[in-house]
């Protein structure tokens, strides 16, 4: 087990010998492999990495990666990860969750994690269905969907993780698809490098209970037209011919065609992921088919102070500025009655 010698890690270092027990064809496999590919770029010590998860198919993740791991309770990965990070800020903390784990039972913890902005990288496997309990609708299931618990169609509005993240003052939100390993690796690296809570929504396929749920976005023949990959500082252009772009017209997003109506590439919005004001990021996170392409990549990445640094600063300041250095000092401070 000894592995103190430091050398450049490879994806192999993060693989486990035990079998990965997701269903054949599960989107989880490609996410796992993208994470294993991204990790060597963001850490030199696998002993300082922890993967925390809740309950659900996605939450088996810690068993499948060769780092420290904590497979916790349904919905509770966020406070557990927060405790690890607040206690020891040197640990790189990843959190793997699903749409039920993070948006339903863990919904409260989700928004509070984001509000506090601890430096934790969150991967939400969003397959829009409960897989481990075999096919009930989740908080991200589109309204009207027929599932085992909504035989007549759901009558609930669906959550969009990006809206929740930004509503909770999130500093980082990105979206990827499980069919694009290159995109996933690139975005996971950016998420890890962002100091603060990074939320990455992975549009994941559930081959058993919700097969092809993201087909309209991820399908090979439609993906260039139905996805827009955003990169900071670059114009928001997409399409098979890269001839379409996004503009804000009358306070709303509009898809325009370059070359038509006098529109040139210069007119297309340039993505500013680092802007503190999230208004445009909100609009981007909300883009929905069929009117718009779905936004991929890093939608928001705003640098801001993180919880654990401020906590450490307060502790260090208090230690440096108090005369009370230990328990004996404390016991003898203030009102002490000496009876002789």
């Amino acid at each position: 087990m000894s592995d103190t010698i430091t050398y450049k890690l490879s994806s192999q270092d993060f693989k486990v010998t035990n079998p990965v027990k997701w269903c054949a064809g599960c989107g989880g496999f490609s996410v796992l492999s993208a994470v294993q590919n991204a990790l060597p770029e963001v850490t030199e010590e696998k002993n300082k990495v922890v993967f925390v998860s809740g309950i659900g198919c996605s939450s088996r993740f810690p068993y499948y990666i060769n780092t420290y791991g904590f497979h916790s309770l349904h919905g509770r990965a966020m406070p557990i990860a927060s405790g690890i990070k607040a206690a020891n800020p040197d640990i790189q903390v990843w959190l793997v969750t699903g749409d039920g784990d993070s948006m339903a039972i863990g919904g409260n913890h989700f928004i509070h994690l984001i509000r506090r902005n601890l430096d934790i990288n969150v991967l939400i496997f969003n397959n829009k269905i409960y897989g481990l309990t075999k096919g009930q609708y989740s908080p991200t299931t589109p309204k009207g969907s027929k599932t085992k618990t909504s035989p007549d169609g759901t009558i609930e509005n669906a959550f969009n993780p990006g809206e929740l993240a930004m509503g909770a003052q999130g500093t980082f939100f990105a979206r990827v698809v499980d069919t694009d390993p290159k995109m996933m690796k690139e975005v996971f690296i950016k998420a890890a490098k962002h100091k603060g809570t990074s939320i990455v929504e992975v549009l994941e396929n559930c081959v058993i209970f919700n097969n092809h749920v993201h087909e309209d976005i991820t399908g090979k023949d439609v993906k260039n037209e139905h996805q827009i990959y955003l990169e900071h500082g670059k114009p928001m252009i997409f399409g098979n011919e890269r001839d379409k772009g996004l503009m804000i017209v009358n306070n709303r997003m509009e898809v325009v065609k370059i070359g038509e109506n006098g529109i040139t590439e210069k007119d297309i919005l340039v993505h500013d992921a680092k802007c503190s004001n999230p208004n445009v990021h909100f609009m981007l996170a909300r883009l929905k088919r069929p009117e718009y392409p779905v936004a991929m990549g890093v939608i928001r990445s705003y640098d801001c102070t993180v919880y654990e640094d401020m906590l450490t600063d307060q502790v260090e300041y208090a230690k440096a500025n108090s005369k009370i250095k230990n328990m004996d000092d404390l016991l003898n401070s203030g009102s002490v009655f000496e009876i002789e």
Binding site: P79, G83, I84, A86, N108, V315, A318, S322, K325, M327
Partner: peptide, 21 residues
């Protein structure tokens, strides 16, 4: 001043879970 860290959680469950972490 004695190095104690406290985490005022969003609820009771998060309180104990952060401590378990």
């Amino acid at each position: 001043k004695l190095g104690v860290k406290t985490f005022q959680a969003e609820d009771e469950i998060a309180g104990i879970c952060s401590a378990i972490g």
